[in-house]
C-alpha cells in the first residue's frame, strides 16, 4: 500500500515538474515578444550575413536589446513567421499565395519592407573558357537540354549542374527568372540531374574544384577563385557582367529585391530595427556586404 502511494506521489511530482518547466518556457517566450526585449529573425541564407551585421550594429547602439538571426532559407523564415516562431522573416522573394492563405488562417498579417537588392551570378570554374551566355542557353543548360560544354562553344565535357534546395529563395528566384522567364503559367523545373547543394558556399566550393560545373549564387560570392558569366537577355542584346552598377541601373537581368517581413505594422523594437536598416548607416552595410542598396 505504502509503496503504491509513494510511486503515485513520485509520478505526480514528476508530472508537476514537467508542467512547471513547460509553462515557464511558454510565458517567457511570449513575454519577451510583448515587451520587445529581443527579436528573432529567420529566413533567407542569401542575406543572413547582411542581417547579422545589421543585428550586431543595432545591438551595439541599443545595448539593452538582443537580436537573434538564423538562416534556413526564405521559405523557412516565412513559415516561421506564419507559425509565430519568429518576429521577422528575411526573404529573397515575395510571399506566395499559399503562404498568404496560411498566414490568414493563423491570424498573421505579413508586412513587406524592401531592404536591398541582390544580383545572382552564374559561376563557372576558372579553367572553363566560357565567358558569356544568353538567358536561353542558361535555361537549356539548367533543364539539361544542353548537356555538353561544346554545345555552347566550350570544351567537350559533360556539364554538371549545381542547384540549391527548393527552400532556398535563390532557387525559387533563379527558377522563375531564368527557367520560367517570369511566366507565371510555366511549369518548367530544374533538371532531375542537377546536384542539390546545401548552401551557396557549397556551390562555390564545388565550382572552385570542378571544371565541369556551373552554379548560381549571390553576387557576394564573386571573387578570384571562380569566374562569373556575363549574361545577355537574348541573342541580339549585349552581354552584361554582374556588378553593383549593372544591378542598380537594371541592365543585369538576374537581379531581385530583398525583403524583411514583419507580422502586422511593426512597433517597438521591431520598428526601431526596420528604421535602422533603412537609414543611411544601415544601407551602407548593404554595399559593404556586396549587395546593392535600395537608393
Amino acid at each position: 500500500m505504502m509503496k503504491k502511494i509513494v510511486s503515485l506521489l513520485t509520478l505526480l511530482l514528476m508530472f508537476l515538474g514537467l508542467t512547471f518547466v513547460f509553462l515557464r518556457s511558454c510565458t517567457k517566450f511570449q513575454k519577451s515578444n510583448r515587451h520587445g526585449e529581443s527579436i528573432q529573425i529567420k529566413g533567407s541564407d542569401t542575406i543572413v550575413n547582411l542581417v547579422q551585421v545589421w543585428a550586431e550594429n543595432f545591438v551595439k547602439q541599443y545595448s539593452t536589446y538582443s537580436v537573434g538571426v538564423t538562416g534556413g532559407g526564405s521559405g523557412t523564415g516565412l513559415a516561421a513567421l506564419i507559425n509565430k516562431t519568429c518576429d521577422m522573416a528575411m526573404s529573397s522573394r515575395e510571399i506566395d499565395e499559399k503562404e498568404e492563405i496560411l498566414a490568414k488562417k493563423n491570424n498573421v498579417v505579413p508586412v513587406r519592407f524592401k531592404v536591398g537588392m541582390d544580383g545572382l551570378a552564374v559561376l563557372v570554374n576558372k579553367n572553363n573558357p566560357i565567358n558569356k551566355l544568353t538567358l536561353e542557353q542558361l535555361r537549356d543548360i539548367f533543364m539539361a537540354k544542353i548537356t555538353n560544354w561544346k554545345e555552347v562553344g566550350g570544351e567537350d565535357k559533360k556539364i554538371v549542374i549545381l542547384s540549391r534546395e527548393s527552400n532556398s529563395g535563390t532557387h525559387m528566384f533563379f527558377k522563375e527568372r531564368v527557367l520560367r522567364n517570369n511566366d507565371k503559367n510555366s511549369k518548367d523545373e530544374f533538371s532531375v540531374h542537377s546536384l542539390i547543394m546545401s548552401s551557396s558556399q557549397a556551390i562555390y566550393d564545388e565550382v572552385c574544384q570542378n571544371s565541369n560545373s556551373l552554379g548560381y549564387v549571390g553576387m557576394g560570392f564573386i571573387n578570384d577563385g571562380v569566374k562569373a558569366i556575363s549574361i545577355a537577355v537574348n541573342k541580339t542584346s549585349e552581354h552584361v557582367y554582374p556588378t553593383v552598377k549593372n544591378v542598380t541601373n537594371n541592365t543585369y537581368t538576374i537581379s531581385r529585391p530583398l525583403y524583411l517581413y514583419t507580422n502586422n505594422e511593426p512597433c517597438g523594437i521591431v520598428k526601431m530595427f526596420i528604421e535602422y536598416v533603412l537609414s543611411d548607416t544601415g544601407q551602407k552595410v548593404v554595399s559593404e556586404t556586396d549587395f546593392v542598396p535600395i537608393n
Binding site: G73, G75, T76, A79, I82, N83, K98, E99, S166, I196
Partner: peptide, 19 residues
C-alpha cells in the same frame, strides 16, 4: 551517379515546409 537519399531529403526540406 549522384543520388539523393530519403534521409537527406527529409533533413534538407523539413525547415521550409509549412506545418
Amino acid at each position: 551517379d549522384p543520388v539523393r537519399t530519403m534521409t537527406a531529403t527529409i533533413a534538407a526540406e523539413m525547415g521550409e515546409a509549412v506545418r
